[in-house]
Amino acid sequence: MDLSIEKINLSGTISSEIVKIIKDNLLNGNLKPGDKLPTEKELMEQIGVSRTPVREAIKILEAIGVIQIKRGEGMYITNNLSHFTLNPLIFSLIMHSNDMEELIKFRQHFEVLLMNMIITKEEKNIRPIEKVYQTQTERMNPELSPEELVDIDLEFHFAVLEATNNPFVIEIGKTIYEIIKPKMIHFKNAQNIERTLATHKYYLDLISGKLKFNSSSIVQDMIRNNEEMVNESK
């Protein structure tokens, strides 16, 4: 299948432009759920790019549920496409995912928003968050790989997302974490398990009202914590 391809904008990353090409082909109907995508080599030839950005784009598309890779068969547009997949705001986040420093800053402010949403709810249920935290204290150990540690770490953040009961926030949050996940794996190691658990306990104490909620000081704490965690991994 030949894709409908417009001129690539070289001001951004090539992988993001490839993601945009797939999105545009879905929106204009050239691609539909269940369609088989061209192979990596065919994509390289059609778009006129090297293998690396094609593979990066495929990883992004697979992570957010746009494509499914079937071993020995190829790549397919998933049959379970939802409004999440084609949400312009979600794709906008993906398009700007190369600016990781700004995305991390956005995540910090976003998480303050999450906590404030939960705190100000008339009826809130933070028990699922507490249960995730308790299991993390038992499961996070130095023998796990960075990938495994990040997966356990993100369980807590996903539980916080769900506690907002806001579908817009949940969709945006999940995308933010999927984009940031590779960066988290890069600096996650056994030495900062304690820091991760302490951060989650801090979140819990804020949400439960044990600590006073002050958005500006919380953001500063997050920034400092991230900087220290990155430095520890070097």
Rank of each mutant, 00 (worst) to 15 (best):
Q68I: 09
E56D: 13
K41C: 00
R51M: 10
I64H: 05
Y76P: 09
L86E: 03
K59H: 08
M75P: 06
E62D: 14
K59G: 04
E73P: 07
A63P: 06
I64V: 15
E62V: 12
E73D: 13
I77G: 03
R55T: 12
G74K: 00
Y76L: 06
Y76S: 08
V54F: 03
L61P: 02
R55Q: 13
E42A: 15
E45Y: 07
H83C: 09
Q68V: 13
G74L: 00
R51T: 05
I69W: 01
G48D: 10
I58A: 08
G48C: 11
T52S: 14
Q68N: 15
K59P: 05
Q46P: 08
S82W: 01
E45G: 03
V54Y: 02
L81H: 07
I58S: 08
N79R: 13
L81P: 10
T78C: 01
Q46I: 05
L86S: 09
V49P: 10
Q46A: 09
E62T: 14
V49Q: 09
E45R: 14
L86V: 13
E73R: 15
N80M: 06
M44I: 09
H83F: 11
V66L: 05
T85H: 15
I67E: 02
A63Y: 02
G74E: 00
G74D: 00
I64M: 13
L86F: 03
A57I: 05
